[in-house]
């Protein structure tokens, strides 16, 4: 593992994203939306900052997943990934370079949510921590999809339904009990549950178990895709 190569990939991605509107919009849309909604919609009986945990869950389920999948699939399709590997870049160096870029971009977005939600002290720490965990899982799912797909089109056709499930089920769970039970088995559902009780209870065993189990499954799927893709 070579830090120099990881940082070269990271800087490349930073420049490229500035010119890649489809990825850029993923990072900006929800933080922007939450600022607007939080300031403009105020109804009676509505919890303060009602939209923050809701949109934070969707952001976490969508942005890292779709951007990682599309960046990786595009590099495979356009042959730039092969050129990198032939220039001595190891697959793991590449994935860490892109992954850490996505992590940084999404944590900046998370900062916008934190400010909008006016989280302080323990609440803030819990918020940042759980978002970080969710973004990591989401990035890993994106990497698995990207490694699995031959091109950007097929990556999109897989990542859209997958991200819909993870980001919308927790929201639909508010209205439907069956969905609520399914959602509790998903990492995004647990994170959403946790976000709604920040600073009050701490993390219970259920959340920890679901996150660990989901993390393990995702890691396994990623390993399979990684082997199949010829990246390894």
């Amino acid at each position: 593992m070579d830090g120099r190569k990881i940082s070269a990939i990271f800087k490349k991605q930073l420049k490229d994203t500035m010119k890649n509107k489809t990825v850029l919009i993923q990072f900006i849309m929800f933080p922007l939306l939450v600022v607007i909604m939080d300031h403009s919609i105020k109804m009676e009986h509505m919890e303060e900052h009602f939209f923050v945990p809701l949109f934070a869950t969707m952001y976490m389920g969508m942005a890292p997943l779709t951007s990682m999948a599309s960046i990786l699939a595009e590099e495979k399709e356009k042959n730039t990934l092969r050129v990198l590997f032939l220039s001595n870049v190891k697959p793991m160096e590449y994935l860490i370079g892109i992954g850490s870029y996505i992590l940084l971009a999404c944590m900046l977005g998370t900062g916008v949510f934190a400010v909008t939600g006016e989280y302080k002290g323990r609440e803030l720490l819990e918020f940042l921590f759980i978002m970080l965990a969710g973004i990591l899982i989401s990035t890993l799912i994106g990497a698995a999809i990207g490694a699995w797909s031959k091109n950007e089109m097929s990556a999109t056709s897989i990542s859209v339904p997958v991200m819909m499930i993870f980001s919308f089920l927790p929201m639909i769970a508010m209205f439907n009990n069956t969905v609520k039970n399914i959602s509790r088995l998903l990492w995004s559902g647990q994170i959403n549950r946790f976000l709604n009780q920040l600073g009050t209870a701490g993390m219970d065993m259920e959340t920890v178990c679901v996150l660990l189990a989901n993390g393990a499954i995702v890691l396994f799927l990623f390993g399979m895709a990684y082997k199949k893709s010829g990246l390894a």
């Binding site: 190569k5 070269a8 490229d16 010119k19 890649n20 730039t80 001595n88």
Partner: peptide, 19 residues
């Protein structure tokens, strides 16, 4: 295998950094 959205210089800068 060029990065289409980057300019000529940045395409080479990436590889100069890698090496």
């Amino acid at each position: 295998g060029l990065y289409e959205r980057l300019n000529c210089y940045d395409n080479l800068l990436l590889f100069a950094r890698i090496y």
